[in-house]
């Protein structure tokens, strides 16, 4: 086999996610009344980027064969925090951004400590910490309100050179700064290895616990970047329980659509980002075709159900029934 075929086999899932998104987006823009213009792309990008950040966060944890059901709540908590802190002049705003990202990281670190060093099951532990994070968010913003540095917000949600959506550039920057170093580091490889087979990774002497811990911590950080952008788009902070839950749920959908295996060890953040884009575009397709918005939750639910059921096709490859029980 040639070198490129190995690469293709490794990246197949990610490429498929990009393909699904390209098809969906093509249908979307060709049916959009305004057509393929910079404004349409900017609106679509801004909506998708929020989910893309949360999906990235989820991916890091899912790669280690864990799950983080608190990402949506960290997203909401940092949104509320940003609506207090990211205000004022340049200096105050910078400090505010650092504080918001720092608290997101702290939430992730707490999750990591509880799950890895406390040896609790990630499902229960992160549902519980998610409740606590939501409580703090509610404490910060009992009612929707607050404000944000509008200059910074407009710069990051507008267009660069009148064409490229700035939010996409920011997303690419985060990928370069967080994902690329992580996936190429020893700890990143260990995260993949422990998701693929923890005993084998342990036997090979890989730093499993540190890798998993880093994955949870970075997930908190990425979710907080999402929360920051939510504040930039809405100019307010709101402790919305339903919204937090929805983002957690959609992040899992985006991860699955993006070809990241929920059993761990397979997939990439790039795939999850395109999974998030595709999921958002599917939701928007309904508006283009003039459906009643009431149908949107059902439609998204059905898409989610189909996306997770697609994994069942692997059963056809099973030769020995005992493999059912993994």
């Amino acid at each position: 086999m040639k070198e490129w075929r190995f690469w293709l086999a490794e990246q197949r899932q990610t490429l498929m996610a990009i393909g699904i998104f390209a098809v969906m987006f093509a249908i979307y823009v060709t049916n959009h009344p305004a057509g393929f213009t910079a404004n349409v792309v900017q609106t679509a990008a801004n909506k998708s980027v929020l989910l893309a950040f949360v999906a990235m966060a989820q991916t890091l944890v899912v790669i280690t064969a864990g799950i983080d059901l608190s990402v949506g709540m960290i997203f909401i908590l940092t949104n509320c925090l940003a609506s207090w802190l990211v205000v004022g002049g340049a200096g105050a705003t910078t400090l505010g951004v650092i504080a918001v990202l720092g608290s997101g990281l702290a939430c992730g670190i707490l999750n990591g400590l509880i799950v890895i060093y406390g040896r609790l099951q990630p499902i229960v532990a992160t549902i519980a910490t998610g409740a606590a994070y939501f409580g703090i968010a509610l404490l910060l913003r009992p009612y929707p309100g607050g404000s944000v540095n509008e200059g910074l917000a407009d710069a990051l949600t507008g267009k660069l050179f009148g064409v490229i959506p700035a939010s996409l550039v920011a997303l690419a920057a985060v990928v370069l700064v967080v994902w690329v170093p992580f996936s190429r580091s020893v700890l990143g490889r260990a995260a993949y290895a422990s998701g693929s087979s923890e005993p084998a990774a342990y036997m090979s002497g890989m730093p499993i616990r540190r890798a998993k811990f880093l994955a949870y911590a970075l997930a908190g950080l990425l979710a907080s970047i999402g929360g920051l952008f939510l504040t930039f788009f809405t100019y307010t902070g709101e402790a919305a329980y339903a919204s937090g839950n929805a983002y957690t749920l959609f992040s899992i959908a985006a991860v699955v659509l993006g070809g990241v295996s929920l059993f761990g060890g397979k997939g990439s953040v790039i795939g999850a980002i395109f999974g998030a884009f595709a999921f958002r575009t599917i939701g928007d397709l309904l508006f283009v075709f003039d459906f009643d918005p009431l149908w949107q939750p059902l439609f998204q639910g059905v898409v989610l159900l189909i996306a997770v059921s697609l994994g069942a096709f692997g059963l056809f490859r099973v030769r020995n029934r005992l493999e059912w029980f993994g």
Binding site: W295, P297, G301, L305, L315
Partner: peptide
């Protein structure tokens, strides 16, 4: 279908919610 229970139950929850909203 051997889908992880955590995932399929989240999905049916979303579908049930969608049905009730409609």
């Amino acid at each position: 279908l051997r889908i992880p229970s955590m995932i399929i139950t989240l999905a049916t929850n979303a579908v049930a919610q969608g049905l009730m909203v409609v």
